[in-house]
């Protein structure tokens, strides 16, 4: 693995290796001293062309726990708005000696362009590009699903296990969601069955080629498929306005059709869990009842995000199996 650009690039074995490595990383995070010396002397650049405090902090924490030097480069106003171009920014970072570039960009394909252009020699990690991909989010979701739903709900060792047979419903604005695209590919790679649920306006033309079922009716999916997990996607309020595309008539109508509330939560199988990539719009796609219920693993997803990103940075920069017994210098 030279870069991590798309969840679709991962083989089943690679995906399971990342999850297993993440589990080992998570174990180290239970210790009093959480820092590992593994990436000492290496430089990880967080190159964020789009605001995302959560994702940036998660990557920053992951890199620091591995003892890498971290440079945060916030470049709001890319070449799209005629600021400094992606190319010049990348060349600058290359000159500073970045071993890995974690990139968040509003343009779909920007990480791909960065990785294939020769502008940087470092490993490129896609931290979310436009409406294309967000592979570490899918990996942390898969990790969370495996922890809760595989091997007696985490009571037995799940090392080496995939998500064979799990049923996952992904609900909401699929059209604009890089989280949905990444999860459809990765969860399929890992053997899960994905059903996409949303109003037809928020499902892309061409979705028929995806490895997922599509439904426009959340209640039917909950009743008929009895999903093991429901992943709620963030819906931006501006999407309903005419200027935002007029994708649905009103927030209330959206919530009635696709919001996860107490009633729908109760209709889910007892073991089913609720995921959300955050940040949540409480009252729109998810009610407080659902978000705060014991079946919601949303806060845990954040913690798992650090472990998964540690695993990704580790596998890209150090290679091989992790030696988590090493201790950081005091």
């Amino acid at each position: 693995m030279r870069h991590l650009l798309s969840a679709g690039d991962l083989t089943p074995a690679e995906a399971v290796t990342i999850l297993d490595t993440a589990a080992q990383m998570a174990a180290t995070q239970e210790r009093e001293i959480k820092k590992l010396p593994t990436l000492r002397g290496r430089t990880v650049v967080n190159l964020f062309f789009e605001d995302s405090t959560r994702t940036r902090i998660s990557f920053e924490t992951a890199a620091k726990r591995l003892s890498a030097d971290v440079i945060n480069f916030s470049a709001k106003g890319s070449s799209v708005s005629k600021g400094e171009s992606l190319k010049d920014t990348a060349l600058t970072l290359q000159a500073m000696g970045a071993d890995a570039v974690v990139i968040r960009h509003q343009a779909s394909g920007a990480p791909h362009t960065l990785a294939t252009s020769g502008w940087t020699h470092g490993a490129v990690v896609n931290a979310g590009d436009g409406t294309h991909q967000h592979p570490t989010q899918a990996l942390l979701d898969a990790y969370t699903l495996r922890r809760h739903l595989v091997g007696d709900g985490g009571r037995s060792d799940v090392t080496g296990r995939d998500l064979e047979g799990l049923k996952v419903a992904i609900v909401g604005d699929v059209l604009h969601s890089r989280v949905a695209r990444s999860n459809v590919q990765l969860l399929h790679t890992l053997g899960a069955e994905v059903t996409l649920v949303g109003p037809p306006t928020l499902v892309p033309v061409g979705v028929g080629a995806w490895t997922a079922r599509v439904s426009y009716h959340l209640d039917e999916v909950i009743a008929d498929e009895k999903p093991d997990a429901v992943m709620m996607l963030r819906v931006q309020r501006e999407r309903m306005s005419s200027a935002g595309g007029g994708f649905f008539p009103s927030p209330l109508e959206y919530t009635r059709g696709y919001g996860l509330d107490a009633r729908r939560l109760a209709a889910l199988p007892d073991h089913a869990i609720v995921l959300h990539p955050g940040p949540m719009n409480r009252g729109l796609e998810i009610s407080a009842d659902a978000a705060d219920s014991p079946r919601a693993v949303i806060v845990e997803q954040v913690a798992n995000g650090v472990a998964v990103r540690m695993a990704v940075l580790y596998l890209l920069l150090a290679g091989g199996a992790p030696a988590t017994n090493e201790r950081a210098d005091a």
Partner: peptide, 18 residues
């Protein structure tokens, strides 16, 4: 719009030109 709207645009996450 960025590219033809269809199977490829859906996957690439580029806004479609139907």
């Amino acid at each position: 719009a960025q590219m033809h709207e269809g199977v490829v645009s859906a996957e690439l996450g580029l806004a479609g030109w139907p």
